[in-house]
Simulated scan of single mutants.
Amino acid sequence: MTELIVALVEFLKQFSYFGIMLSLCFEFIPAEVVLPLAGYWVYQGDFNYYLVVLVGAVGGTLGPLTLFYLGRYGGRPLVLKYGKYFFVSQKQINASDYFFEKYGMGVAFFARFLPVVRTAISIPCGMSNMNVWKFSVYTFFAMLPITAFYVYLGVKLGPHWNQAEEIFNGYALPFTATLIVLLLMFVLIKLLMKRKSQSL
């Protein structure tokens, strides 16, 4: 299956940056394959790193909208029936549901860094009738560092670009934890500053 996906992405390469963006619009084509491969093309001198990251983040935002609307208009029964065609398993759907219920709408950003739920998280976001623009903004700003890192790994690994997913997964959880801690610190500082100004 991976060989077939790589062949399809190689075919889309002829459309330059648009081809990279287009390949990320299809949820059945994993970003974990496309982005390191695009990084390998940067390594070969065929593309510019920063433009690949930009179109990759845009494509990585447009793609999840498919599952978002499937969740919104189809509900859980339709998702369970057709999710397999988007390479989304019931285990991923259950995990993303739990994650969404526990952490709320912020998961549209944070869940993108977690291996099991990052694809399926679009579904509960859609089912909850989350604002599509808010969902898109959260997704884009999450996809930006993910895309940059995957493409960077592809550049550095060169011909061994297919090892990128394993390396990424090793860094994803610590990165997300650090990001959450920094965000909580920021919110806490803002609250303390607000309380201090009110007491004056």
Rank of each mutant, 00 (worst) to 15 (best):
Y50E: 15
Y82F: 13
I29R: 00
R112I: 13
F109E: 06
L70N: 02
F186S: 04
N131Q: 04
Q198R: 06
L157R: 01
Q92A: 10
F68C: 02
L144P: 03
I93C: 02
L12R: 01
L173A: 14
L183F: 14
G75Q: 11
V132M: 06
P145N: 06
G56C: 10
L67C: 05
L78C: 10
S89T: 15
A142Y: 00
H160W: 07
W41A: 00
Y171K: 09
L200Q: 07
E165D: 15
Y49L: 12
M185T: 08
G56E: 09
W41T: 09
F86S: 04
K84V: 15
V187R: 00
G158K: 02
I93E: 01
Q90T: 15
A31W: 07
F18E: 09
S16T: 15
M1V: 12
I5W: 01
A31K: 04
T119G: 08
T66A: 06
N94L: 12
L144E: 12
I29V: 10
V137H: 01
L179E: 04
S136V: 07
V137E: 02
Y40E: 10
I167T: 01
Y50D: 13
S199M: 10
A142C: 06
Y43V: 08
K102G: 14
F87Q: 05
Y50S: 12
P124R: 01
V52P: 01
K84E: 13
G83C: 07
F28P: 00
Q44P: 08
Y69A: 06
A111G: 09
G71K: 01
G63S: 07
G126M: 00
L179W: 07
E166V: 14
L188A: 09
T119S: 08
I20T: 02
L78F: 09
L157H: 07
L4A: 13
G106W: 09
L179F: 11
P145E: 11
I123K: 00
Y152Q: 05
E165T: 14
W133Q: 07
I5P: 02
